[in-house]
Simulated scan of single mutants.
Amino acid sequence: MSVYKITPADRQLVEEFRSNPVGHHSPELQRVLTRLRGQEPAGKYVLVCTRPHEEFVLAELPAQRGQPLKIHHNRVFHSQEEAEWEVFKMRWEQATGEKLDD
């Protein structure tokens, strides 16, 4: 089974995601998102919706299924778009080693 790889050419897709973090994406961006979302579960950044459509909190998945999430109570977002962009940046850095600007 072949695993999608993020290449330097994929860097151009960052702005596409930033301008539209929620919704339809090009096939190229969808390939990158599939790779970022398919990372190993342990320590994977996720969002927890604490108030529907109003508040999201950053969390990390545990190493073992059934264990509690590690909630980052100091990382609260007031829009889904803002929250998704933050998770994208964190996953991008984990996958590529490149830190993205705000």
Rank of each mutant, 00 (worst) to 15 (best):
V3M: 12
T50H: 02
R65V: 13
E54A: 11
P21H: 06
A42D: 13
A63I: 04
Q80D: 12
R35P: 02
Q12H: 09
T7A: 10
H72W: 04
G38F: 08
K89E: 05
T7N: 14
H53Q: 11
L33G: 02
H24A: 13
L33H: 02
K5F: 12
L61V: 00
L13M: 08
V57D: 01
E54N: 05
Y45E: 02
S2D: 13
G97R: 08
L47C: 00
G38Q: 07
E93S: 07
S19P: 00
W85G: 01
A95I: 06
K89N: 08
E98L: 09
C49M: 07
V32R: 05
H53S: 07
L100N: 13
W85N: 10
L61Q: 12
Q94W: 04
P21V: 06
H73F: 11
R35H: 10
R31D: 08
K44F: 08
R18L: 09
Q39K: 14
A63F: 02
S79K: 01
L13Y: 09
R31F: 05
L13I: 07
E81W: 01
L36N: 00
C49L: 02
I71K: 08
E55I: 00
F17T: 01
K99G: 06
L36M: 05
H73T: 12
A59N: 11
S2L: 12
A42V: 03
V14A: 07
L58H: 00
N20H: 10
R65D: 15
A42T: 11
A95W: 11
E40M: 06
H24W: 06
H78F: 12
A83N: 05
P8A: 10
S2G: 09
H25G: 01
G38P: 13
V3C: 12
L33V: 03
R51I: 08
E98V: 14
R35Y: 03
S26F: 04
A59Y: 10
P68N: 04
E84P: 00
E16W: 05
D102Q: 15
D10K: 04
H72N: 06
D10L: 05
M1A: 14
V46F: 03
N74Y: 05
K99V: 15
R35W: 02
P27R: 03
E54W: 06
Q94S: 12
P52V: 06
K44H: 13
S79C: 03
H72Q: 05
E15D: 15
E86G: 10
H25L: 00
V76G: 01
K89G: 04
E40R: 15
K44Y: 10
V46H: 01
Q67F: 11
H78T: 03
L100G: 05
R11S: 14
A83Y: 00
E15P: 00
R51T: 05
D102V: 13
